[in-house]
Design a protein around this nucleic acid. Structure first.
Length: 563
RNA sequence: UGGCCGAUAGUGUAAUGGUAGCACGACAGAUUCUGGUUCUGUUUGUGAGGGUUCAAAUCCUUCUCGGCCAGCCA
């Protein structure tokens, strides 16, 4: 058996794949068409990324196609800026809608014509109830609604009124076109839902061409039908809308019948995902905009340095189901690390510098040592780094009175300076307050390159930079946006769990010379510290500003924390 | 005393009447010029009761718990 056919047998399908394979096997469809249908009223977040990966991924896997369609039926909330950012986000994830870019607003005329058809069939009527009255007539969850006095208006009068609505004869809110379905339905969506409302508002794409706009529940199924969508995948809260979805397609007498399938949206620990909460974070200044690297927005994680491939991998791993679920943030970070471990070149940066003088190293000598750029990828090559008498190491890599199993530097102990030499600490220099300000060490010339063949056991390895060659820079450390898994679970207010230390600017970090030339928007691993990214928004060529993408796993720090 | 949907290790997700598996996490160990990576092992699960069956996570039934719905938002 070949490897690929074994994989075929072992793979397990999620329920949507199963539906698709079924439809393909029975000949219901010869190929599939999916769509990603955002409303351009905000920035996309990682929950949308799940949907994008699902829809475009399915199309890819089954050699179908996936449309990008903007659901732009509410001009009061939608803007061109969002249309652009959404396209950028989808492309960044690596998906291509090719020529299949659509706008619900392109269907306004077609939608209007079908609305007239519905009126003529006696399936829709113009209602003059006020919004308050509509609400009252609708009934409640447990009480059936009752018919509007306008429900039995004649076809001629409905048509006339509807045309007047379109002509702009009425102010906002005076009339609404409603589907005539069933005011007593236990499903509130079927109690004569609104199809069209009057809005004298300028639309980002159609301008002032229209003053009536179709509702989502009417627009969406018909748009799907127009485009030949076979599987219309949406989130769970639309389950109740499915009967209405089907009603619209059937009553429109449009030949193609798409199928709506619902799946559970993504929730993530330690963050919030709703548009309202995200907006509040931005508006109230808790973060610095929609693309703040702490935000779960696609633009945020892009700026944070999360690779798109990691997001796609994550989307695959979290699965697709109908169960409400909250995915562990750790899984996302795992996917990011896994990708970056293979792709990010290594470099050395000392974030909290402690000076080291190599007392037996010649004063004016500088030598260049060879360092591999990525042990996981030999093709990444190597670079040479300067070594000299005065260096910086990480302050936390030294302890005067170390606990058991501390492998790093302490008085009398020998460690390896990565790619360089073994050094032994001989003296500790302190200031008047007793703070360690400098270390004196000796080096072993025989250990050049960081290795000897004499079988010596050197357990600890530290990163370092040459004091006179390093350049200084602020480095920004980002941490989780919230301190609790489910923000607001305790108090009811998610802002109570906002992490005030989610952004820390670390001044005076010492970076190895090669880092200076990092192009904006490049992932690198600061050896033993974590993955960092040259902030594409503020970096300049020749002057990168590094922000932390995600830390390396740190079992030592974890152990220290426990004790 | 409305309707719809859901419930499998800590988390997420498989098993579609026939050995409850995988991933992440946690824990332990091995390896390692990154306390990273890699590798090995351990831990923990079918919401509850009843029924059908040789056999039930799966089918039936009752219950429990959770989610969504009363925009002229999507």
């Amino acid at each position: 058996m070949s490897e690929s056919s074994r994989n075929q047998e072992e793979r397990s399908l999620h329920f949507i794949q199963r539906i698709i394979e079924d439809d393909l096997a029975t000949g219901k469809h010869t190929s599939i068409v999916t769509r990603f249908p955002p409303e351009p009223n905000g920035y996309l977040h990682i929950g949308h990324a799940k949907s994008i990966c699902l829809n475009f991924g399915l199309a890819e896997a089954y050699q179908g196609r996936c449309h990008l369609r903007f659901d732009d039926t509410n001009p009061e909330k939608e803007e061109m800026e969002y249309i652009e950012s959404i396209q950028k986000d989808v492309q960044w994830l690596g998906f291509d809608w090719k020529e299949h870019l659509y706008f619900a607003s392109d269907y306004f005329q077609q939608l209007y014509d079908i609305a007239e058809l519905l009126i003529k069939k006696g399936k829709a009527y113009v209602d003059s109830l006020t919004p308050e009255e509509v609400k009252e007539y609708r009934g409640t969850l447990t009480k059936p609604g009752r018919p509007s006095p306008d429900r039995e208006r004649s076809v001629e009068e409905n048509l006339d009124l509807f045309r007047s609505m379109r002509a702009g004869d009425f102010p906002d809110g005076t009339y609404v076109l409603r589907a005539k379905i069933d005011m007593e339905s236990p499903n509130l969506n079927m109690r004569d839902p609104a199809l069209y409302r009057i809005k004298h508002a300028s639309h980002p794409r159609t301008g002032s061409q229209w003053c009536i706009y179709p509702m989502y529940d009417y627009t969406h199924p018909l748009s799907d039908a127009f485009e030949g969508i076979t599987h219309s995948i949406c989130t769970l809260e639309f389950e109740d809308h499915r009967p209405l979805y089907d009603w619209c397609v059937i009553e429109s007498e449009f030949p193609h019948q798409p199928r709506q399938i619902e799946f559970a949206r993504l929730n993530l620990t330690y963050t919030v995902m709703s548009k309202r909460r995200l907006l509040n974070l931005v508006r109230d200044g808790h973060v610095e905009g929609w693309s703040d690297p702490r935000m779960p927005t696609i633009s945020g994680i892009r700026r944070r340095g999360y690779p798109p491939q990691a997001i796609r991998d994550f989307s695959e791993r979290i699965g697709v189901a109908k169960t409400y679920s909250t995915v562990d943030f750790a899984l996302l970070e795992h996917c990011v690390r896994e990708d970056l471990n293979i792709h990010a070149p290594r470099a050395m940066a000392v974030l909290d510098p402690l000076k080291v003088v190599i007392t037996n190293y010649p004063e004016d000598q500088v030598e260049f040592l060879e360092a591999d750029n990525n042990p996981e990828d030999p093709s990444a090559g190597s670079r040479s780094i300067p070594f000299s008498r005065e260096l910086f190491i990480e302050r936390e890599d030294f302890m005067e009175h170390p606990p058991k199993k501390f492998f790093r530097l302490s008085p009398g102990k020998e460690i390896r300076l990565k790619h360089a030499y073994y050094v032994t600490c001989t003296d500790v220099v302190k200031d008047d307050e007793g703070t360690v300000i400098e270390l004196h060490c000796t080096y072993d010339p025989a250990s050049r390159g960081g290795w000897t063949d004499d079988g010596r056991k050197v357990k600890g390895t530290s990163h370092w930079v040459s004091a006179s060659h390093a350049w200084e820079s602020d480095v920004i450390i980002y941490d989780k946006l919230f301190t609790s898994e489910v923000p607001g679970a305790e108090t009811g207010d998610y802002l109570d769990d906002f992490n005030p230390d989610s952004k820390q600017v670390i001044p005076g970090c010492k970076l190895e010379p090669s880092l200076k030339e990092t192009a904006p928007g490049t992932n690198v691993q600061f050896l033993r510290k974590g993955y960092f990214f040259s902030d594409p928004d503020v970096s300049q060529p020749g002057n990168p500003v590094f922000i932390k993408t995600v830390g390396l796993k740190d079992t030592w720090a974890k152990k220290m924390k426990q004790s």
